Amino acid sequence: LKTAGVNTTDKEMEVLHLRNVSFEDAGEYTCLAGNSIGLSHHSAWLTVLEALEERPAVMTSPLYLEIIIYCTGAFLISCMVGSVIVYKMKSGTKKSDFHSQMAVHKLAKSIPLRRQVTVSADSSASMNSGVLLVRPSRLSSSGTPMLAGVSEYELPEDPRWELPRDRLVLGKPLGEGCFGQVVLAEAIGLDKDKPNRVTKVAVKMLKSDATEKDLSDLISEMEMMKMIGKHKNIINLLGACTQDGPLYVIVEYASKGNLREYLQARRPPGLEYCYNPSHNPEEQLSSKDLVSCAYQVARGMEYLASKKCIHRDLAARNVLVTEDNVMKIADFGLARDIHHIDYYKKTTNGRLPVKWMAPEALFDRIYTHQSDVWSFGVLLWEIFTLGGSPYPGVPVEELFKLLKEGHRMDKPSNCTNELYMMMRDCWHAVPSQRPTFKQLVEDLDRIVALTSNQEYLDLSMPLDQYSPSFPDTRSSTCSSGEDSVFSHEPLPEEPCLPRHPAQLANGGLKRR
């Protein structure tokens, strides 16, 4: 031991701790050491302190810390799992109470259905409401065949629209698609105040090879029609059969078919879209009749726009005509997947739907009320060519290029400059510069009032120099000039209409 001194630092001082000593042992101690050379000694003081209470040693090893962490984590996880189980049990009790009230408590799974309603004014964004509309049932219905791709499903009954099956008599087919079909039928007692009145209706139903998605689409269309409500110039929902059998959606019946066929059937002799010497046209149409058709469609679209509904496929083929020549817009409630459109795929009647699409819908897939206005301009062109085919002879690839360059279709022969300028306004490259349906209704209403009933179509000018029955994407082998976009001569082996020498072909294109 070194004694503290003047020249001794703290580091040089050493402390020796002795245990089991008493206060009597306190004092100075000297350590002597010697050898043959000499003797040396050092002294140190022993200080006795009071004994401290002994405390248990605390484990601070890493293993002990890990044990604490794992135990704490396990406890927290157990609490979370327990909370989830309690929540599930409570929510399951509430669901079972709800389904027992709906009398569908025996169901095993559900079809996820979404009601898609486009509400954005400047995009294709949609509001999806995840309302459960249908659930599968283990119960089988008697007297009705089961669908191959869709098991029997039981829908919640809506008393406002439900019609008993025994009050619906199915008739002949009116048309069909890939998985759905429409048949003519007679409904008894659609009007609650007149329970014995028989009404001719159209009934939409699924085919035998339909899938769950097809069922989902049909129900979504029905729900959309319920929500949009009734208007004179749209196909209205009349009722539905949802209980004890396949789903039947009952809508208004339009006896004169779609507008395109309606116009073609009323072309003057010699100007029909397909040469037929025995062709006997229906009643002749006046200019006022054509303007009235456009006015009614505009009114229907104005109503749909007021309900925040974007059609996305407005064309003469999707406008139906009733016995009283009332125009009714159809298929506005269809669920369309705008992100998976095949631009080169034709519709069932051979038309390319892209020829009715606005550039922003075609290139950027942006659907708005103003893109519907563009389609309405093409529909106007169809009306005043009596069912002509837009951009005849123009392949899709060429159409993309022409639209980007600002080309537009030429004025039809039997169309006034004012109406043609309306078409051109609908085809404005900037969507915000196109008229609204409200403005179109006002303009067409004024034109109808000024147009005489006696103004019949000028038969001295050809209505349509093209054969719409030909595929639109076909290139002409005998077109006049180098560019078949601006002219389209008859093919030698097929009868077509004579070309008027002083008139540019109706399907020609102009640059805006």
Results as ranks from 00 to 15, higher is better:
L380Q: 14
P353L: 04
S480A: 14
Y367S: 07
M205I: 04
H340R: 05
E212Q: 03
V430M: 08
L440M: 05
R336W: 07
N236I: 15
Y275C: 09
F400C: 14
Y456N: 14
Y262N: 07
E482A: 13
D217V: 12
P392H: 00
S432L: 10
Q433H: 10
A240V: 07
S371C: 06
M227T: 12
V203E: 01
K232M: 14
R365Q: 13
D458G: 11
A361V: 04
D425G: 12
N318H: 00
A335P: 00
Q264P: 01
T473A: 13
C426Y: 01
L402Q: 11
A298S: 09
T416I: 11
S469G: 07
K411N: 04
N417K: 10
S255T: 08
K346R: 14
A202D: 02
S208W: 03
M357L: 06
L320V: 10
N349T: 04
D324Y: 10
N258D: 12
K328M: 15
M422I: 11
K404Q: 07
H339R: 13
A294T: 03
E176V: 08
I228L: 15
Y391D: 08
L290V: 06
T348I: 02
L259V: 06
S452P: 13
T385N: 08
S460T: 04
D244G: 13
F384L: 12
V378G: 01
C478W: 04
P195A: 09
P268T: 03
S375T: 05
H407R: 07
M421L: 11
H369N: 14
K346M: 15
A202S: 12
K172I: 14
M205T: 04
M409R: 00
Q433R: 08
Y466F: 11
T211I: 02
L352M: 03
P268R: 06
A298D: 01
Q296L: 13
I383T: 11
P390A: 15
Q264E: 01
K411T: 12
G388D: 01
P462L: 11
I338L: 13
R408C: 00
E382V: 02
H231P: 03
P246S: 11
L259M: 03
D217E: 04
H428P: 00
K401E: 05
L457V: 10
I250T: 09
H311Q: 00
P246L: 11
Y466D: 07
W427C: 00
T347K: 14
E398K: 12
H340N: 12
V485I: 15
I250L: 05
E397K: 05
L419M: 11
R260P: 00
L402V: 06
R434K: 00
D191A: 08
D464E: 08
C241R: 15
Y367F: 06
N196Y: 04
D193A: 12
H311Y: 00
S278G: 04
P468R: 08
A330T: 02
L463Q: 09
V319L: 01
R434T: 00
I250F: 04
I341S: 14
T347P: 02
R408G: 00
I341N: 07
K232E: 14
T322P: 13
A305T: 14
V354E: 02
W356C: 02
P392T: 12
K404M: 08
K194E: 07
S306Y: 15
R434I: 00
I366S: 03
F437Y: 02
N280K: 05
N417I: 06
L174Q: 01
L386V: 12
D217A: 13
E223K: 12
H369Q: 08
S286C: 07
Y275F: 08
E252Q: 15
C274G: 10
S208L: 04
R351Q: 15
Q465L: 06
N233H: 09
N280S: 11
F363L: 07
K200N: 06
W381R: 05
G257A: 09
D191V: 15
V394E: 01
L362V: 03
N196T: 10
T477R: 09
M422T: 09
A294V: 02
I219V: 10
F470S: 09
L457R: 12
Q296P: 00
S479P: 15
K308R: 13
E442V: 09
G406V: 00
S479A: 15
K200E: 12
G239V: 04
K207N: 07
K411Q: 10
R408P: 00
E382G: 03
M421I: 10
R260W: 00
L386P: 01
G300V: 02
D364V: 12
E252G: 15
G333V: 03
D472Y: 06
A210P: 08
T436I: 04
Q284E: 04
A185E: 04
E398D: 05
L444P: 01
K207E: 01
L170V: 06
P395A: 13
E323Q: 13
Y273D: 03
E282K: 08
S480T: 14
S475T: 11
S292P: 11
R167S: 08
P462S: 07
D483N: 15
V448A: 10
D483G: 15
E302K: 13
R474W: 05
D313E: 00
P412H: 00
F332C: 02
E272A: 06
V394L: 11
E455G: 11
E397V: 13
D472G: 13
L304V: 15
E442A: 09
P390S: 02
L314R: 01
M422L: 12
M327V: 04
F400L: 10
L237V: 09
P173R: 13
G177A: 02
H428D: 04
G171S: 14
V378A: 03
D331N: 02
M301L: 05
M421V: 08
E176G: 04
S306T: 09
A187G: 06
C274Y: 07
R336Q: 00
P471R: 10
E482D: 04
N349Y: 08
T436A: 08
I188T: 08
M224R: 01
V251L: 15
F470V: 09
E261K: 07
D331V: 01
M301V: 08
A187P: 15
V326A: 03
E482Q: 13
I250S: 03
I228V: 05
A202V: 03
L184M: 12
P269T: 14
S286Y: 12
N318D: 02
K256Q: 05
V319I: 10
Y262C: 04
E455A: 10
K401M: 07
A265T: 11
M461V: 07
D464H: 11
W356S: 02
L457Q: 14
D443E: 07
Q243P: 14
G229E: 14
D331G: 03
A265V: 15
L271Q: 12
K204R: 02
M409L: 09
S484F: 15
T347I: 14
S475I: 10
R424W: 04
L334P: 01
M222L: 14
L190P: 08
F179Y: 05
M301K: 01
G171C: 09
W381S: 02
A330V: 06
D193E: 04
I447T: 05
Y248F: 10
V326E: 06
M225T: 02
G387V: 00
G177V: 01
M227V: 06
S413I: 09
V249L: 15
P268H: 04
D425E: 04
T242A: 06
Y456F: 12
G387A: 11
G393V: 02
F470C: 10
A294S: 14
E282V: 06
E223D: 12
A210G: 11
L206F: 02
T347S: 08
G239E: 15
N414T: 11
C309F: 15
K204Q: 03
Y420N: 05
R336L: 04
S479C: 15
D191E: 05
Y253F: 14
Q264R: 09
L379R: 02
V448G: 14
V373A: 03
Y303D: 04
S306C: 13
L334I: 02
E283D: 07
N236D: 15
N453I: 09
P412L: 01
E323D: 14
C293G: 04
T436N: 11
T348S: 10
M227K: 07
L263Q: 00
E323V: 13
P471S: 04
P281S: 12
L247S: 07
Y391H: 10
K230M: 03
L215F: 07
D324N: 12
P468T: 14
Y273S: 04
P390L: 07
E272D: 07
Y343N: 03
D209Y: 06
P390Q: 02
L403Q: 02
N349H: 12
C274R: 03
I188V: 05
M461I: 09
Q439H: 10
V448E: 11
D342V: 08
S216T: 10
E282G: 06
M205R: 07
V291L: 06
N258T: 03
E455Q: 10
